[in-house]
Amino acid sequence: MTKSELIERLAERMRVQLPEKDVELAVKAILDCMAHSLANGERIEVRGFGSFSLHYRPPRVGRNPKTGEAVSLSGKYVPHFKAGKELRERVNAGMKG
């Protein structure tokens, strides 16, 4: 399912009727809000879905794959997702069903 398919489904299924254009803006706003939160080092916690947090990657010496030259890479943060209980259980039950 892509972002545009998600927008279509939401426009069809919400009890509250909203034009697809508004649903599109809302989906973009939700994702921006989430990205912004992580960019500020703030976790995201959604019960039954999961949590997003940052994991630290320490500095390391990498290599330029073309020239083989060593380059030092500074430490950085990467986004990490941990699925919540309901999501884990439904996805796993989906496999059997």
């Binding site: 919400m14 009890r15 509250v16 939700i30 309901e86 989906g94």
Partner: peptide, 15 residues
């Protein structure tokens, strides 16, 4: 409802 359904549709697709 928008926020609730946003996460529910993603769960449902994955399920």
């Amino acid at each position: 409802e928008m926020v609730e359904m946003f996460f529910e549709e993603i769960r449902s697709a994955l399920e």
